[in-house]
């Protein structure tokens, strides 16, 4: 069994008010110097067998059809 990580982030040009809310809190907590925060999602997908090319291809299809909406989000895949 292998674990494949899919990181999903809003495209850079799309406003992320959740990230902004987090970033606004940081100075109140005493953390200076943070310019911006953007919030994303991480999926860990467990697949049967090794994380070979076929398995990664399948995860890629799952990511682009369900886990991410390519209209607004980018995703990256890596093996854990």
């Amino acid at each position: 069994m292998a674990r494949v990580v899919v990181d999903v982030m809003l495209k850079p040009e799309i406003l992320d008010p959740q990230g902004q809310a987090i970033a606004r809190k940081l100075p109140q907590m005493g953390y200076e110097g943070v310019v911006a925060v953007r919030q994303g999602k991480r999926f860990e997908v467990e697949v049967e067998g090794p994380a070979d090319e076929a398995a990664l291809e399948r995860v890629h299809t799952i990511a682009e059809t369900l886990l991410a909406n390519p209209v607004i989000e980018n995703f990256e895949i890596r093996v854990l």
Binding site: L10, L15, Q18
Partner: peptide
């Protein structure tokens, strides 16, 4: 339909 709907800007 094109585009998408995201969380309200005011959250």
């Amino acid at each position: 339909l094109p585009g998408a709907l995201l969380p309200n800007a005011g959250l």
